[in-house]
Nucleic acid binder design. Structure first.
Length: 424
RNA sequence: GGAGAGAUGGCAGAGUGGUCGAAUGCGGCGGUCUUGAAAACCGUUGAUCUUCACGGAUCCGGGGGUUCGAAUCCCUCUCUCUCCGCCA
């Protein structure tokens, strides 16, 4: 969420910049400023009364100790009015404080200046297009047919066990996926990320910290019995490791990576986009997360993009990098790069990674701060994360792009992880 | 699931209803000493809000109550730990 003081000091700027996210913030901002002022006035008043009350209480204590009962009870009689005032102001304060908060969490993050304007994915800016698209000829098969042909993935069995979107991986299909996970984790480690194995279920506070709650709970599976949520991405538990934490400046940047299963309800998805591995309720992903110094976070973003790029390159996939337009960006992001790989049989670009700088938006919610060397006051850090990478669509693209009449060729970098060179 | 114990500053751990934002120890930071380091000694060391500033307010798991005054008493919720049961 945006910092209140920042909104207060830059109302026009906030309204103007959020237009790029196609969000009309004028009413909310106006109301926030109005309430914020009222809140401060009440606080100042309440503080004065409290100060008086504290003084009086001390005096009464003193009088009692000196045995001056008369004067003490006389002083006591003066407190009731103060008490009433304080109580009333405190209640008013709490009410306004909550109102401000409710408004504050409705404001999306401010997009960075280089975010292109636009409303739909068509308006995203292609910043790079690289790698060669394979020439598969006429006999090419989509990955769901390849998966069946080589007995790699059983979608029907998943339906039997759970429902659509929960495939069962088998044999080389399973092995292939595990190879990718290990490859991604190893690469992340080489790039300096500390591996984390987080819980796959989180509480409400964690959901709030990274921005899934309060509004996007429809996206997460909710275990109502215990009021816990299945994670939609490892971003949630890993970023929340740093909730309510004050780091030393020299600890930055913090670099963590985690493999996890991810669970998404994907309510409202339908049609051909959900075919095969294209959109699942449960999928595997390796995530990278960084906590960065505010002055360095865009360097860090570039570094993360370069890391993700190196992965798709090593896998030999044709890819493109998109700078998301304001309308296609998430609520929480300030700048997002999406990676898409070309899945040559379906002839579709599949999103396999999303790398974002959240600036202080999550950190504000998380109360994630750091202290620069020699500085007394802690300041809000920046958080970033990216998929490196999301598995199913990578599997889909690799199966399709690497199919030959002799079988599916395993990318060289994966052979040591798989233990086989061909799927046939 | 049953029984019990507990929740205090970065950590450990005191705390009689007023002088407690909180003893003490460890850790951290600064200094003395040393060629350097260690040890020892001295000092220092929470966060948030508010004010131009001086200052003021709040915070001892969350919420509520009693009281002139609550870390301390009462109610309630949450969480953690221990033992038993079950179990990967």
């Amino acid at each position: 969420m945006l910092n209140l003081r920042f909104i207060q000091d830059n109302p026009e700027l906030v309204i103007e910049k959020l237009k790029k996210k196609n969000f009309d913030a004028s009413a909310i901002v106006k109301e926030i400023i109005n309430l914020y002022q009222k809140k401060n006035e009440i606080q100042v008043k309440a503080d004065q009364f409290k100060s008086e009350m504290n003084k009086l209480s001390k005096e009464i204590g003193q009088l009692f100790r000196e045995g001056k009962q008369e004067e003490a009870s006389q002083a006591k009689s003066r407190t009731s009015e103060l008490k009433d005032n304080i109580k009333q102001l405190d209640e008013e304060f709490a009410k306004i404080d909550d109102e401000v908060f409710q408004l504050q969490v409705q404001l999306p993050n401010i997009p960075a200046d280089i975010v292109p304007a636009g409303k739909t994915p068509e308006d995203n800016e292609i910043v790079k297009n690289a790698g060669e698209q394979p020439d598969l000829g006429e006999a090419k098969l989509p990955h769901w047919e390849l998966a069946e042909k080589y007995d790699l993935i059983d979608f029907e069995l998943g339906v039997k066990l759970t429902g659509a979107g929960f495939p069962v991986y088998k044999g080389k299909g399973s092995r292939f996926q595990r190879a990718l996970i290990n490859f991604f984790l190893d690469e992340a480690q080489k790039a300096g990320y500390l591996e984390i194995q987080p819980p796959l279920v989180v509480n409400e506070d964690s959901g709030f910290g990274t921005g899934q709650l309060p509004d996007k709970e429809g996206q997460m599976y909710h275990v109502t019995e215990d009021n816990l949520y299945l994670i939609p991405t490892a971003e949630v538990p890993v970023t929340n490791l740093y909730r309510d934490v004050i780091l030393e400046g020299k600890q930055l940047p913090v670099k963590n990576t985690a493999y996890s299963a991810c669970f998404r309800r994907e309510a409202g998805s339908y049609g051909k986009d959900v075919r095969g591995l294209n959109r699942l309720h449960q999928f595997d992903k390796v995530e990278v997360v960084q906590v960065a110094h505010p002055e360095k976070s865009y360097e860090v973003l570039d570094e993360m993009v370069a890391h993700v790029e190196s992965l798709v390159q090593k896998l030999g996939l044709p890819y493109r990098i998109l700078r998301l337009c304001g309308g296609d960006m998430s609520f929480t992001a300030a700048l997002t790069y999406d990676f898409e790989v070309f899945s040559a049989a379906q002839e579709k670009w599949l999103e396999v990674s999303s790398v974002s700088n959240f600036e202080s938006f999550q950190a504000n919610r998380l109360k994630l701060r750091f202290r620069d060397e020699g500085q007394k006051k802690p300041q809000i850090a920046h958080t970033l994360n990216g998929s490196a990478l999301a598995l199913p669509r990578i599997v889909a693209a690799l199966l399709e792009n690497n199919q030959t009449p002799e079988g599916i060729k395993v990318p060289e970098v994966l052979v040591p992880y798989c233990g086989f060179e061909w799927i046939r």
